[in-house]
Structures are given as C-alpha cells and as structure tokens.
Nucleic acid binder design. Structure first.
Lengths: 165, 165
DNA sequence: TCCGCACTGGGCATCCTGCTCAGCGACCGC
DNA sequence: GCGGTCGCTGAGCAGGATGCCCAGTGCGGA
C-alpha cells in the first residue's frame, strides 16, 4: 500500500470535519483545484482507505446502548466453526483473535442487562467454547478517533504533495 | 431517542450498500419519493444516528496495521487524569471504562512491534497506572458490522413507516 | 367527524458532478 | 543539458442532483 502524502492526510482531516462537503468545498478549504481533490478521492477510495459505511451507524440509535467485551477461551482447533457461529449472532459487532490469555475478544451490543445475559449464554453454548468472561463497558473514556493520529503524521513531516513522480 | 421505524432501517441498510448513493438513487431503491428520503436523512442526522466520519478511516492506510488491546489497571481515584493522559497519545484509538478485573480497555494502533512496545511503555508511565497487559490482535475474525443487527430489527418486525402520527 | 401527520408528485433556480483538454512546473533518467 | 513523465491547474460543457417550495391524499387518533 502506497504511503499517503500530506495532501491525502489533509484531505482526510478536512473530510472528518465536514463529511458531507462537496468536492468544490473541499478544494476551496485545502486551496487545491477541484480536479485534484476529485482524483485524490477516487484514488483513496480505490486504495481502500475508507472503511464501510456501516461503521458510522450508532448502536445507541438502534436501541442497543450497552457495549460489552467478551473474552472467549476456545479449543483453538475449532476456531473456524466458532467464528462462523459468532457471525451468526447479530449482536456480535466485532471479534478479534488475540495473543495472550484469552483467545478471542468479541465486542457485543445489547439492549439491556437481560439481553446481554442472553447473548453471553448464546456464546457459551457454541461448540468448542470453554469459557466466556463478559466485561461491561460503563463509559467510553476515549471515543473512537483517527484524526489525532493523522495529525501526528502531518506534524511528524511526510513528503510534500506536489510535483515529482 | 425515538425508535427508528422500518423505513429508517431500510434506509440504513441501503446506505451501507451504497454509501455514496444520491438521494434520488436511494429513493428509487426503496420505492420512496425523493422528498421523503431527504427528510429522513435530515432527521437521522439531527438525531445523531450517524457517528463521525473518522470511524471510516483505515488504520492500515495510515501505516498502522497492528491493533492491540491494552487492559489497564489504575488507581480509580485518578481516572480523570489518566483519561486525559490517554487522550494525549494519538495511537490510543479508543478507550472504555470497564466492569470486571481490568479498569480500562484501550484500543491501540501501531506501526509495528517496536512501536507497540513504545506505546505500551508510554501508557505504563502514566501516573496512577498500576499495570498494563497488552494483547495483540492477530486476526479480525468478525469485521465491524451493523447491518446484521439492523436486519434482525427489520425481520423482528417494527411499526410500519407510513401514515399515523 | 375532523385534524394532523407523513408521503407524494410537480416545479424551479442553483449548484455539483463527471469528463475532457491544454498548459505548466518539477523531477527523473539518460 | 534535454526530453519524458507525472501531478496540478484552470477552463469548459452537458447532465444530473440539490434544496426548497407547494398542493393534494390517505391514514390514524382525538
């Protein structure tokens, strides 16, 4: 994957500020020509810099205000089937295979405590699952953010965005 | 927060399929009038159903392909300062206050193993942090998804979208 | 029965989009 | 030093989308 240059990063920051900005507005904000912005956006899209829109849907709005992390210990030989089973539970929003004591960390969205208990049980009943420890997220201390990282890349100095090959 | 009706949910699914679709295209896909779609989108936006665009930026693209989860044990009295310190680390992408054995679960993005170690050390040096256990995410078994949950709400039957108050 | 609400379909001026083209400046390899 | 190549610019153009307005309609609740 190509390394993003300053122009790309500035574009990402601007997009984060005004996600629905038109190409013209973005060009104005960054003092670039409309053509350049358009070309960059196409390239960024093709390179897969933008993750699916799904990620922008609020669980709260869907009536699932509770977030919980479930640490799952499994028979590692059966990981494939277990993954499939987890995919079958819509409330399992995300799951990672981990190093360390637990094998799988699943992120779960629930309507309320009962609902969470139900989902927890459902995970426990999956064949090959040994144990599942649920931790409820009480506060989001740091809300998902990418811009600080992008800005650190900008400040840290990348190659300039003009001329050259 | 108002409960989303069938029309809203169908709109979310359609948007997930084609995030850059025009209002006209969405209206066509859902067999609604353009005016209705436009009004719904405005309302969904006002209600905060859409999370920030930042969430759609790929860490891989930013040169941070490694994801790690850091379980942090802290002096709970100092949680406020600790949160501020975590916010000061750009690589800390998200952090939750948890019930259970650990106090804080932080999600971290890193360039490579060394980088991860550096960030881990930086977290450890925060005043009030007792211990920090890092687990590296090796695979994303289930990529972030919301649509299955939305569809389960659709299938489960919500109130219809037309008429009434 | 009447009211209010949400959706519909039409219309309108303005702006954006997607595309093309020529020109220019900078850096590359030769 | 020189041509080649790449990225940015500014202009132009047809088609379409946007944002806004309004009147009409069907349904449920008061």
């Amino acid at each position: 994957m190509r390394t993003l240059d300053t122009t790309d990063l500035r574009l990402l920051v601007e997009l984060s500020k005004t996600p629905d900005a038109t190409t013209v507005a973005l060009a104005q904000a960054l003092s670039l020509s409309r053509n350049t912005v358009q070309a960059r956006l196409v390239r960024l899209t093709e390179e897969g810099v933008f993750l699916p829109f799904e990620r922008r849907i609020s669980m709260d709005a869907l009536g699932h205000p509770l977030t919980a992390f479930v640490q799952i210990h499994v028979h590692q030989q059966r990981l494939t089937e277990i993954t499939a089973a987890l995919r079958g539970i819509p409330e399992v929003v995300q799951a990672h295979g981990l190093t360390g004591s637990a094998d799988v960390l699943a992120r779960v969205a629930a309507r309320n405590a009962e609902d969470l208990f139900r989902i927890h049980s459902r995970i426990l009943q999956i064949d090959g699952v040994d144990r599942a420890d649920t931790s409820l997220a009480m506060t989001e201390l740091v809300a998902w953010r990418t811009v600080p990282l992008v800005e650190s890349l900008l400040g840290g100095g990348e190659a300039g965005g003009k001329g050259g090959r």
